[in-house]
Design a protein around this nucleic acid. Sequence first.
RNA 1: GGUCGAGUAGCUCAGUCGGCAGAGCACACGCCUGAAAAGCGUGGGGUCACCGGAUCGACGCCGGUCUCGACCA
Length: 288
Amino acid sequence: MAVATGAVGGSSIQIVAVDAMQVYRGMDIGTAKPTADDQRAVPHHGLDLVDPDREFTVAEFAAAANSSIAGIQLSGSTPLLVAGTGLYLRALTDPMQIPPTWPAVRSTLEARLATEPVEHLHRELALLDPVAATKMEPTNARRVVRALEVCVGSGRPFSSYGPGLESYPPVPFVQVGLRWSRPHLAQRIEQRVQRMMHAGLLDEVQRLRAQFALSRTALQALGYKELIEHLDGRATLDQAVQQIVVRTRQFAVRQERWFRRDPRVQWVDIQADAVTEAVPVIQELLSR
RNA sequence: GGUCGAGUAGCUCAGUCGGCAGAGCACACGCCUGAAAAGCGUGGGGUCACCGGAUCGACGCCGGUCUCGACCA
């Protein structure tokens, strides 16, 4: 927000949230969605795209976000993408063609997993698309099924859809990564989860559950799935909260690792809570 | 004070007949193309509470000490 409220290169800024969970209406506290005040101060995009009973995908997000970005640029403003979700960002910053889905093929493959080991499917993938097969562990059911789905469905190798995530071509914009030390990260996450609980996260979860049958993708949201476990009597509140803290920490580290291997990202290390001190540094990087 | 039980990885706990100390979680690192806040893989970690004894050899057996728990008084 501090960066977005100052202009960069003379034009005003609009924020595009690149976040797989903030797309869900009503999931506000647990996704740390920008407040109403923030949204009033700076136009936001990518938020509240669907109800939480809807499944949501990268491709759908990319379509929505790309059209938002085009609109922002047409109006003469500068889009500031805030991630969030690594894969969603790559789908916007890099020319990725994401193959469509073949639900019938997929359900056949998934049904086979009940009676066959994943390695069988991986062996079939190795025949249809040796390149893709070597790029994934034979035990990773999700990736194997998806790759096979595309091969069988489209009639062409999964790997023919492009280099995927392993290529980092130059881009005409700046990418800045914010990074805290692990101890500070842990401390901030602990505090953040406590703050969410005090803000009524448990009520939010109960309310959403009463109103919707949460979709498979929405149910993956940190904070929500753990509190549902508690509400169903499978964990005490304390256990659930501790679990949220641990998983959020693991997720934050996974985010850091995801972006760490992208050579185009310029990192800003933030000392403790000195976020405001980092703002000029970020603005300087962005104005290049 | 007595009896019984427990003490093994950061945590929770397995460890058969005395024969190279294990699992899950956590942690570190890597992977990732319509589920990605998801999914998958690799790895580092040990004074087996402590002291002594018997044995070729002890986490394990014997003696003692300490800590925790339950029960009895």
